[in-house]
């Protein structure tokens, strides 16, 4: 019961943060004004709210969901609390291909960049599959392979940055993760994915619960571990890939949201998955709201803000945990 209450509480928190993120910015919009700008088409702030802040906040939530759940699946699968889509090279792959587009094809139409990032995420995944002998190696070895793949892409990104030193601003902004300028088109390309992948992920909670016990137990309990591992990984990579494609490589949420969720509700995935998703969304919403207002007229990328806010809370939770033990 307590666990359900925590999930409900996080949901309410998300509603509050969502409202805040709609009302703060260069101009602060009061609640009544906010309400009327959503209801009436031509009210004073309707453009800012409907065309600018609303899609942006919706994307915050969707990407927060995607990144956090991708992290949950991955951490349980490899039974490594340090794993995240960032660590096994998926976000780095996306980042490398995005950087390729930014540096080599600056004239390409706007939709090429997210497409390339998505492709990069899956490309990294395929590389992982090949090198890890189709996932037959141990989870620890798999994580190391992932780190190696990530290192290759990171080197590629560094090479591009050194090669085109005067054009790095765009690439750096993308790679730190930014919500600037995201509109309804991005919502439309992200929403269907998340709507399909999120319920599927949740429906897998029993398998994830079993996976946590270790390969031996999983096998003994009748799980076809290689096959299930592949399917779950594919799920995780898809979630991370579509999220990163629309908001840039924000690695931190996938690492931290699952941890916070575990600290709060224990090891059962039927609770971890929804809670981690909500925490991911909350982190994105707070990060973006603050990032938008602290240095007006400029803004701090959401990836930077989520790390600044999330890390201290994470450390606090860890210390509390240690005291309890």
């Amino acid at each position: 019961m307590r666990k359900i209450m925590i999930v409900i509480f996080s949901f309410l928190l998300m509603v509050i943060f969502f409202t805040i993120s709609l009302s703060v910015g260069t101009v602060t919009i009061s609640l009544p004004d906010l309400f009327s700008s959503v209801m009436q088409k031509d009210s004073q702030f309707s453009f800012i709210v409907m065309e600018y802040r609303l899609p942006r906040s919706v994307i915050s939530i969707l990407a927060g969901f995607g990144l956090a759940v991708a992290g949950v699946i991955l951490q349980s699968l490899v039974r490594n609390p340090l794993a995240s889509p960032d660590v096994i090279g998926v976000t780095k792959g996306a980042g490398f291909f995005a950087a390729l587009v930014i540096f080599l094809f600056p004239d390409s139409p706007a939709y090429v960049l997210p497409a390339a990032a998505l492709f990069g995420a899956f490309f990294a995944f395929i590389l992982l599959l090949i090198i890890s002998k189709r996932l037959t190696i141990s989870p620890a070895a798999f994580t190391l392979v992932g780190i190696a793949v990530g290192a290759i892409f990171q080197a590629g990104i560094q090479y591009l940055i050194v090669k085109f030193p005067t054009d790095i601003n765009m690439a750096l902004l993308w790679m730190s993760g930014s919500l600037w300028g995201r509109g309804w088109n991005e919502v439309l390309s992200l929403l269907p994915w998340i709507m399909i992948l999120l319920p599927i992920s949740w429906s897998q909670y029993q398998k994830l619960n079993v996976f946590q016990l270790g390969d031996e137990y999983s096998k003994a309990l009748g799980l076809d571990i290689i096959r299930q591992r592949f399917l779950l990984l594919l799920l995780s990579v898809s979630l991370a890939g579509v999220s990163v494609a629309s908001v840039g490589s924000i690695g931190f949420i996938g690492l931290i949201a699952p941890h916070i969720a575990r600290q709060l509700v224990g090891g059962r995935h039927q609770y971890i998955i929804p809670l981690a998703a909500l925490i991911g969304a909350n982190l994105m919403l707070i990060g973006d709201s603050i990032g938008r207002v602290i240095i007006i007229p400029r803004e701090v990328p959401v990836g930077v803000m989520t790390a600044i806010i999330g890390a201290p809370y994470f450390v606090y939770l860890l210390r509390k945990e240690r005291k309890r033990n």
């Binding site: 260069t26 101009v27 453009f47 600018y52 706007a110 601003n169 600037w180 300028g181 803004e299």
Partner: peptide, 29 residues
């Protein structure tokens, strides 16, 4: 604000009747 990420809220609050943008930086918006 920034040429790379101009502040769209301020921009819209000015209610301009012409915006001149750069292909490389602003095609996404």
């Amino acid at each position: 604000g920034s040429r790379y990420e101009p502040n769209i809220e301020i921009l819209s609050s000015l209610q301009p009747d012409l915006i001149i943008a750069d292909l490389n930086h602003h095609k996404a918006i």
